[in-house]
Design a protein around this nucleic acid. Structure first.
Lengths: 261, 261
DNA sequence: AACTTGAGTTCCATTTTTTGGAACACTTTC
DNA sequence: GAAAGTGTTCCAAAAAATGGAACTCAAGTT
């Protein structure tokens, strides 16, 4: 096994709750021998992948990674464009907005803009979430065919809450609705009291796909505001879809019932 | 030489003008054999460090790096706090703001907020700049002793423009001024027509130091606005310095001449 | 249709790293 | 000052990386 995979494992140890690691952390988290952990961290520091915090024994990601991470957004210019849209909406409505990408059956936040309200949703960037049980995930899954979705879940679903889809068929029904209406919605699924609406858009040129999401406390948002948010998201995404000539984009199609409050 | 250093070299190939690389790019940029380049890129992709663009032969940084890069900002919470201050000021005045860190004799941007004005400064994040010839760099260098600064430049300066410090003594004089006034300023140094003001702040806990900078076209900013920007930066940084108990912080000390327009 | 060029991949024996157990050092804590 | 916790160094065995050359594949070009 190459040292590269060990290094990648180290990077995966970082999370929203673990901003730096020590030799012992690696031993417990990855089960590697102390000697390897010690040398690996030092090597990664020497190569500029990690840096030590002050002159302690704690290691954290180095500027190089911060820098390269930024380039990801530009390389995937879809991310950058979508981020601009979400940020604009987030600023306008004061609720938290973020964009996510799907990797297999997981979705993870790539950028986030915190809301201004006293009661706001705080997203943890970089931590993976089950795609089927989040609005961002379903917005992205809706771009796949039913067969492709089934193939993603050979062993069925393990729903994290009662409001999440409970079976594959349940999920497929919700994806069908998402395609019809052009947006996905979640309520109380991953986090209690949190409501989220998402739309997805892709770039056929690069094969990238992202979900744009606005997330807010269910309690403080009126039906009219919710609709306005959905509309902003849909319009922003539609512009991007036009730009990238995304053929699989599902445009907003608010049903009569919803548009007349 | 470890494969890790080769991998780090690959990451260093990315820049604001190169968002993805190919096997041949590595051959020319790093002078490595084609076979190695091919295997290295594949290995890095398999480990989740890179991803291919669509299904082409182009490789770009993967989400993992984007994710870990974000954590850098939180690990170095000084960066995050300073970024919030700069963003607030940037939003308020409409000019580009960014925060930078120093690594040896170079400074590089870590986060940036683009201005709103038609004529705005566009910063390239992640590309290194000579510290002595930029306001961010001098704000950071001012935190060192004269001896430490001299040690950074054993072979003297290579000024990139006539407005940059031309000799070590020239630089030290400007650093002395920076310490006295609490901010650094550059005009026409790295980029023609661009003016920048910076203040630096550190966190003794972690040893981190960052520069907060607002950058604008010299032509369109009145003396009063410039002063207001300097004041905002100084105050924002002072709050952070108080929080981190930064002993080396140089508070704002606008001379009489400047405060009375 | 055959030829050339450019880009990327695979093969293989040789060289170089990596591995992990154990001994060693250094700090805290009791 | 012993004990526990944490990180570093050493070593021979095991595994991975190296680079030259042969190979594949796709686009042009004659």
């Amino acid at each position: 096994m190459s040292i590269l995979s060990a290094a990648a494992d180290v990077l995966r140890c970082f999370s929203s709750t673990r901003h730096d690691v020590t030799v012992t952390d690696l031993v417990t988290l990855l089960g590697m021998p102390k000697s390897n952990a010690s040398r690996l961290l030092r090597a990664m520091r020497d190569e500029g992948l990690l840096e030590t915090v002050g002159d302690s024994k704690r290691y954290r990601p180095a500027v190089l990674l911060c820098r390269v991470g930024q380039f990801y957004r530009f390389a995937a210019s879809l991310v950058d464009r979508s981020d601009a849209v979400v940020r604009r909406i987030s600023d306008a409505v004061g609720h938290t907005g973020y964009i996510s990408v799907r990797r297999g059956a997981e979705v993870m936040g790539v950028t986030a803009h915190s809301g201004r309200h006293a009661l706001r949703v705080v997203t943890t960037i970089g931590d993976g979430l089950p795609a089927f049980a989040s609005s961002t995930g379903r917005a992205l899954l809706a771009r796949l065919s039913d067969d492709e979705v089934r193939a993603l879940y050979p062993n069925g679903l393990v729903p994290p809450s009662v409001t999440a889809p409970q079976h594959i068929d349940d999920l497929l029904a919700r994806l069908a609705l998402t395609r019809r209406e052009g947006y996905a919605e979640s309520d109380d699924e991953a986090v209690r009291g949190v409501h989220a609406v998402s739309v997805a858009v892709g770039d056929p040129e690069t094969g990238d796909e992202v979900a744009l999401c606005i997330s807010f406390p269910a309690a403080i948002v009126e039906p009219a505001e919710r609709l306005a948010i959905i509309r902003s998201l849909g319009e922003g995404a539609a512009e991007i879809a036009a730009l990238t000539q995304d053929k699989r984009f599902y445009p907003l199609n608010l049903s009569i019932a919803e548009t007349a409050p």
